[in-house]
């Protein structure tokens, strides 16, 4: 046994073993999406024939309004991501840079409340939005606008907290200099802070996008109509209880829906890992 073998063999075998573990389900999905029989049985590791039928089905079958689902997911997730960063950044700026009475108390309160997992208040949100529906159906239970509001409001605690952490890490010298030069807080915010923070805000925006895209249970409770569902809810309902017949189309759909998320995630890896060490956990 050479020295190389002694030092590196276990490293490579551990890594390869875990890579196989990591890749197995993903490979299986790709395989099933190309399998015309629509089953997820593992007949062989190399596909005997490749067919794009499952992908075509997504775009042609009236039973699967896949494009509407994607469109809904994109609209909901991007609206929530952009608005929550626009609104959250202003609050985070105030918490981080401005002086006011009760600031410390406010921060402590925020810290406490953002620990409350949103899902615990699920029935309360449900009842509240049911009541909103009784006088304003277009923003109540069952509407996409209502869902967006719930996501947006619900993300405020965590988002302000997360953004505050990022804002704290941006050096304050520049806005202090601006302040000495006579800039008002509004000017400091728009002309100094926003350009400086833009990359960070973009990252938080994308993270928020992924988070919303991944949300399931509120979307499930809110979006009842087939056409109005998000990708996650649509695909889940689609395979519910009958894995055998629909697996191929589900596999194709989940690959298409996952690719953009995986790309965003991988390109943001550095920020996400830094954010992780700051104590946040991805869902």
């Amino acid at each position: 046994m050479t020295k190389w073998m002694r030092e590196n063999l276990w490293r490579h075998s551990t890594a390869i073993f875990m890579c196989i573990f990591a890749l197995f389900p993903l490979y299986l999905v790709v395989l099933s999406s190309l399998n015309p029989s629509g089953s997820l049985q593992l007949t062989s590791f190399i596909p005997r024939e490749i067919s794009w039928d499952n992908y075509k089905m997504l775009f042609s079958s009236p039973k699967i309004p896949f494009l509407s689902w994607v469109k809904n997911s994109l609209i909901i997730s991007s609206t929530v991501a952009i608005s929550s960063v626009v609104i959250g950044a202003a609050s985070a700026f105030a918490f981080s840079r401005l002086k006011f009475k009760g600031k410390k108390l406010g921060i402590q309160f925020l810290l406490l409340v953002q620990m409350f997992p949103a899902i615990l208040a699920l029935s309360a949100v449900y009842v509240i939005m049911e009541r909103v529906y009784s006088f304003a159906p277009s923003i109540g239970l069952g509407s996409q606008a209502g869902l967006i509001l719930v996501y947006l409001g619900g993300s405020m605690g965590v988002n302000i907290w997360l953004l505050k952490g990022f804002v704290d890490s941006i050096p304050a010298e520049l806005d202090e200099a601006a302040k000495i030069d006579g800039a008002s807080p509004m000017q400091t915010y728009w002309l100094i802070f926003i350009p400086l923070a833009a990359p960070v805000l973009a990252v938080v925006c994308l993270l928020s996008f992924i988070g919303t895209f991944n949300e399931f249970i509120l979307a499930r409770l809110f979006l009842v109509e087939m056409e109005g569902r998000t990708v996650a809810v649509g695909l889940q309902q689609f395979i519910g209880g009958q894995y055998a017949t629909n697996w191929g189309a589900f596999a194709a759909g989940s690959i298409l829906a996952s690719i953009p998320i995986v790309i965003i995630f991988l390109s943001l890896q550095r920020y996400i890992v830094n954010g992780l060490t700051a104590g946040s956990v991805k869902g």
Binding site: A22, L23, P25, L26, L28, V29, I210, F213, N214, F216, A232, L235, Q236, I239, F250, A251, S254, A257, S258, I261, V262, F265, L266, K282, G283
Partner: peptide, 13 residues
């Protein structure tokens, strides 16, 4: 990769 995939999709798979 398992971390980058949308968890909902992976769980369903």
């Amino acid at each position: 990769l398992p971390y980058a995939m949308p968890s909902i999709m992976s769980i369903l798979i």
